[in-house]
Amino acid sequence: MRAALIQLHVSSEETAAQRWERAERILSQLKDRAVDLILLPELWGVGFSNFAQYREAAEPLHGETQIRLARWARDANAHIVTGSFIEKQEECLYNTTMLLDNSGNVMGNYRKIHLFGYNSQEQQLLTAGDKTSEIQTRYGKVGLATCYDLRFPEQFRRMVSRGTEAFLICAAWPKARIDDWKLFCRARALENQSFLLACNTCGKWNGEEGGGHSMIVSPEGKILAQAGEEEELLLADIDLQEVKDFRARFPALHDYTCIS
């Protein structure tokens, strides 16, 4: 499976329309690259820290994000993790991600469970999700997560207990804590013997700088590919059979005991 992570530059100096234009320009480069899976980052359309615009930017689950990216899924013949957007359902707002198949159909969605409270209004403005998301694809079972979720290992172990072989993560992780990002990405992959694909933002917004360093990590915790600090298209080939092989060779998950 060939994966493409689109590490987007997100800043307060541009509009959502300009970010869409740039994202679609990068997507157009993937038409003939035989890519199977494309990931975009967290809240790239509105900007994570642009809290004043959350309600205005909100859309239904099957709204602009799904409609526009469905076209690119078909054109590239690839699955797409949409990156997250502000979903509106009745009076509630969620930080939501979808997985589209190569025909543009929604295979599943995930509402961010762990909302960020440190120097952030996410907890005040949004409603937390209450379900993990595990989705069966033709390549294997994948689990969706978002940014701050990386700090909560129980969520990832639950996804693994339900058959997940690869974690697909969208993020807007800041440069100030990028060492934590690198540590958590490797740890969540290694302790769960799973691939981890994490797509981050870069750029500046309200004095906060995105950390970049999107990465693909093996089930053995090795970084197979990593972006820098600027906008970048990161490509890597992975084989989910490696998950089964490593788990059989070193069956640590079978030794897991839940301590009450």
Rank of each mutant, 00 (worst) to 15 (best):
R2K: 15
R2Q: 06
R2W: 10
A4Q: 12
L5F: 05
L5N: 01
L8Q: 15
L8T: 10
V10M: 00
S11C: 14
S12Q: 07
E14C: 12
A16N: 11
A16F: 12
A17W: 05
R19A: 05
W20E: 01
W20H: 03
W20P: 01
W20Q: 01
E21S: 14
R22H: 14
R22N: 06
E24Q: 10
R25Y: 04
I26G: 09
L27T: 05
S28A: 13
Q29Y: 13
L30G: 10
L30H: 06
K31T: 13
K31A: 15
D32N: 09
D32A: 15
D32E: 15
D32T: 14
R33Q: 15
R33H: 10
A34C: 14
A34K: 15
A34I: 02
V35N: 11
D36H: 15
I38P: 00
L39G: 03
L39R: 04
L40D: 09
P41G: 00
W44A: 14
W44D: 06
W44Q: 02
G45C: 12
G45L: 08
F48T: 02
S49R: 13
N50K: 05
A52K: 08
Q53W: 00
Q53V: 00
R55N: 10
R55L: 10
E56N: 08
E56D: 13
A57V: 00
E59P: 06
E59W: 03
L61D: 00
L61E: 00
H62P: 02
G63E: 00
E64A: 07
E64Y: 03
E64M: 03
Q66D: 07
Q66G: 06
Q66T: 09
I67S: 07
R68Y: 01
R71V: 11
R71Q: 12
R74Q: 13
D75M: 09
N77Q: 13
H79P: 05
I80S: 04
I80K: 11
V81R: 10
T82E: 00
S84A: 04
F85E: 01
I86F: 03
I86T: 10
I86E: 00
